[in-house]
Nucleic acid binder design. Sequence first.
DNA 1: GATAGTGTTTAGATATATCTAAAAAAAATA
DNA 2: TATTTTTTTTAGATATATCTAAACACTATC
Lengths: 222, 222
Amino acid sequence: MTLTGMLSFVEENYLKAIYHLSNSGEESVTTNALAEEMQTTPASVSDMIRKLSKKEVVNYKKYQGVNVSEEGKLIALRVIRKHRLWEVFLVEKLEFNWDEVHDVAEQLEHIKSPLLIQRLDEFLGFPQYDPHGDPIPDENGQFTESKREPLSQTQIGITGVVVAVEDSGTAFLKYLDKVGISIGTKITVEDIIEFDGSMDITIDQKKSITVSQTVADNIWLA
Amino acid sequence: MTLTGMLSFVEENYLKAIYHLSNSGEESVTTNALAEEMQTTPASVSDMIRKLSKKEVVNYKKYQGVNVSEEGKLIALRVIRKHRLWEVFLVEKLEFNWDEVHDVAEQLEHIKSPLLIQRLDEFLGFPQYDPHGDPIPDENGQFTESKREPLSQTQIGITGVVVAVEDSGTAFLKYLDKVGISIGTKITVEDIIEFDGSMDITIDQKKSITVSQTVADNIWLA
DNA sequence: GATAGTGTTTAGATATATCTAAAAAAAATA
DNA sequence: TATTTTTTTTAGATATATCTAAACACTATC
């Protein structure tokens, strides 16, 4: 009953991971990196890549790494579109916290119904960003890539607005809630500790805290 | 990663089919009937039943048919609950027609997130019936089974209100739209043709039409 | 440029869900 | 009751997605 070109859940997840790791489809992704990302073994990754390559959704030469083909990129972006639209739905309509949406959206993103996504988009008022600040691509995979940089690459004295944060882990988002950082928060870099890359920052011109480099890597400013 | 007792999509679908075919878990379901319902072979059904039996969600003795256990009934009813809540969402919020919701709900019913269903229920205002008039069980599988009978078993002269219709097929629901029958429609039985069981009925005391026995079997009145 | 080490792929195995074909059990019929 | 027919189950195969262990290919070093 599987339609031609129809990918399984697992295949869609691999494609999404390849897209993400390759920095939006440009760089080549190694087998080990993918295995780490997918929480599986390099052997399984090799098998799956061969399969995706046969379906022509990835470009692949043995031992040379892999990245998404044009067709694969569009498929990945459509899955990402669905993921982010569902996240908006969960937060805006069902009052989920931003740290509760990821796992549910990981399931909902695989529902196959173009009409559903079209109507959901409409119902939500055609949102441009998800609750973590990531842009929502349109049906054709187009989105406006706003220029933004990680907090960790900002200089002392610079003030920026948080436009996005990494959305994968609950723990990180709970931490941001605790210290009072969300999309739109104004952050000023007061000092950078060279030893470990941690930063002293001021939040909304009021509260001062120190954040680790790991944290600073996962907050984007504009 | 599969949690203990966690059923796959396919297993959930079998359980649901067994529950439906057994008249809400009372009668015994034959292998052939299940194969027909699941659009597969008796051999596949046998295999799956053995598996479900090992997981103790169905009661099964070889050659004696199968039905859901207490635990299996609750699982089936929770899947049905999800299916019907999603149908309400699609019709009420995303403006789907009642003949467009079934296939999408078949996918959405397998999403695993108790919080999602709790919030969805709340968001929809705790609906008691789905768009086809079927009752929505609560978290514990409880629902008020209203007394209703198929139009085909009604007598001449009787007037009833449509409280439910069979929801599985698009063609049937499109037909009901065409002739002007929906939930709440008043139907009066004018005549019953003994030869083929077809019926002359009046719709909302205005329009008169003739419906086949098959159609009459799939409309419930109260 | 040979070699040690790391990264990657293949070979072979397991579990799920399905199938066809054959065997076994139950039901229907003579 | 014996036999035929139908239903159901088992046996053996296929496809997906995974694994471990072994082989292979690149890279870095001496």
